[in-house]
Simulated scan of single mutants.
Amino acid sequence: MLGLIITIIIVGAIAGFLARAIVPGRQAMSIPMTILLGIVGSFVGGLLGYLIFHSGNGFLQPAGIIGSVIGAIIVLLIYTRVGARSRA
């Protein structure tokens, strides 16, 4: 169980940092928020993988690193658009 949590945190950190590097613009996020972005992105990527390929263990599952990065990019784009709209 502890190994799974550590793996999710490490994959979340990698996916979050890659997503922030790929998406243009400045994102004012701390390191824990970046890790949380990657973790949420991992579950979004798992959801998309399940919906597209109909494979896996269920509807809510973590994805691999590529799915995590894609999911984190989607979450980051939504976060920046909603955050920009609420500040305007």
Results as ranks from 00 to 15, higher is better:
48 L>Q: 01
35 I>K: 03
18 L>E: 03
20 R>T: 09
82 V>P: 04
22 I>R: 05
12 G>Q: 05
55 S>E: 01
86 S>I: 04
48 L>R: 01
23 V>C: 00
47 L>P: 02
11 V>L: 14
37 L>K: 02
73 I>C: 02
80 T>G: 11
13 A>D: 10
7 T>N: 14
46 G>A: 12
79 Y>C: 00
81 R>N: 07
42 S>K: 10
76 L>D: 07
57 N>Y: 12
5 I>H: 11
22 I>G: 03
66 I>E: 04
73 I>N: 06
41 G>Y: 06
18 L>Y: 09
53 F>Q: 08
42 S>Q: 12
47 L>Q: 08
52 I>A: 07
19 A>H: 01
4 L>Q: 13
38 G>Y: 02
34 T>R: 00
60 L>H: 09
1 M>Y: 10
25 G>Q: 09
55 S>F: 06
5 I>Q: 08
5 I>K: 11
7 T>Q: 10
78 I>Y: 07
75 V>N: 03
24 P>A: 04
31 I>A: 14
50 Y>P: 00
69 V>F: 01
59 F>S: 03
71 G>D: 11
76 L>P: 04
86 S>V: 07
60 L>I: 15
71 G>V: 06
5 I>F: 15
56 G>Q: 02
12 G>N: 13
4 L>N: 15
9 I>Q: 10
79 Y>Q: 05
54 H>I: 04
25 G>D: 05
22 I>V: 08
10 I>G: 04
24 P>S: 08
37 L>M: 10
85 R>T: 04
8 I>N: 15
55 S>D: 09
60 L>R: 02
15 A>Y: 07
9 I>D: 08
88 A>W: 15
87 R>G: 15
10 I>N: 04
85 R>V: 00
30 S>P: 13
3 G>E: 06
10 I>M: 11
65 I>Q: 04
5 I>A: 10
7 T>H: 09
12 G>Y: 02
4 L>E: 13
9 I>C: 10
23 V>E: 00
1 M>H: 08
4 L>H: 12
49 G>Q: 01
17 F>D: 00
48 L>C: 04
52 I>T: 13
4 L>M: 12
76 L>G: 03
80 T>Q: 15
11 V>P: 00
53 F>N: 13
